[in-house]
Design a protein around this nucleic acid. Structure first.
Lengths: 215, 215
DNA sequence: ATCCGGCTTTTGTGATCACAATTGCGCCAT
DNA sequence: ATGGCGCAATTGTGATCACAAAAGCCGGAT
């Protein structure tokens, strides 16, 4: 007989290191260009270099960290061209995810989205950049999970990961005082069953941060 | 003064292993579900387990290999749902790449595409599945390189990688006798500067293999 | 004060080892 | 012949070590 082997806690050391690093990067808790060392990560998480190396390699493969020619690891500093590309990718993938999620979006999901959206305000008042990014992404992820498209969602999360360190400085410049306008448009389009409106709202929300680069 | 440090040959061992494995997987030279061992890979490439492990981890992170709960590594066997998702991703990303490449596509590029396309016929007559996949992807990559969008191209290649082992069996069922019809449509649209036609042709070419699943 | 040289320290890489868990084979009982 | 049990071989994981290269630092010359 196979007992349930604690599916969440039975993780290897490199996986723990990977997940914690990944979370820090995705939520913009590490500044762009910050340097990391394998031994430093190892001692920070209480493991040897081996799991630290594997976690770092994995994050490099996902574009969350960049590797200098001499093997040094740091969070990437993205060029404006690359940011534009990643925003375009977010738009392409997330519009599709939202579109696929819409037919399955029942009322409980919409209420959940409204609840998440309402917590954004208090995070904003605390000037908590990482918290803002986290709640914002939770809003999107909650919607996209309904699309039942794990490969697409993984792709979208990879893009979020690559944008993580940059988002912090971007949202830092953005002196926001209220919950994002486009989130309300997304919820309204979901309620109305308005698919073109949903696609437009998601595209607008995703590319909105881009304006900070050009202006 | 900084001399050019042989940018292509100065590679670490794990990178050599990674690239060779990646090529084999992307071009469908490994059947879906095939098992791999770290020690096996190590001895095959004349290195120890350490570089083999890093190469495998990297490929797992890219979705090119799948990891069982006990850490065993194998090429993934994709469900039909996942294949549909990946095809949809190819369509989204590659249509955008083609669209961005079109304004920069001068006559030399079109001739290059025609040249690549003409070699497909002879590969087909040899019943060389891996060769067919390789030339087919080279056709697409050549076009997309002109888009000057490295992040998008990397995303597209990741999808190709995930589909690699499956493509072999897919193209195996496809008894093809001539170069793909949609490649000629792509070239014609490029020549005519017909952007909607190009988008349609790319979308059709990319999702064409999918019909083998449903019929 | 600034720039250059050499030296020390830090850092990544790859090999090897000990260990635990899983796998898979063979043997035995029915 | 078949199904289950147990042992042996295989395999992934993580730690440690030796080594080479890169980075940072300190001092001296100009």
């Amino acid at each position: 007989m196979l007992m349930n082997p604690k599916p969440d806690s039975a993780t290897s050391a490199h996986d723990r290191v990977y997940r914690r690093l990944r979370t820090q990067i995705m939520y913009g808790e590490i500044a762009p260009g910050a340097a990391l060392t394998l031994r430093g990560i190892g001692t920070e998480f209480g493991v040897s270099m081996t799991p630290a190396r594997e976690a770092v390699r994995r994050l490099v493969a996902e574009g969350a960290l960049s590797l200098s020619s001499s093997g040094r690891v740091s969070t990437p500093e993205l060029s404006n061209d690359r940011i534009e590309e990643l925003a375009a990718l977010r738009s392409l993938i997330e519009v599709e995810l939202a579109s696929r999620a819409m037919p399955r979006a029942h009322i409980a999901l919409i209420e959940r989205l409204q609840s998440i959206n309402s917590t954004i305000s208090e995070v904003i008042s605390n000037r908590d950049a990482a918290g803002y990014i986290r709640v914002n992404l939770e809003f999107h992820r909650t919607l996209y999970l309904r699309a039942q498209a794990p490969a697409m969602l993984a792709m979208a999360e990879t893009v979020w990961l690559q944008l993580g360190p940059t988002m912090r400085s971007l949202y830092g410049r953005l002196r926001r005082t209220e919950a994002p306008h486009y989130h309300r448009l997304i919820i309204a389009a979901l309620k109305a069953g308005d698919e073109p409106g949903l696609r437009l709202a998601v595209r607008s929300d995703v590319t909105q941060g881009l304006r900070l680069l050009t202006t």
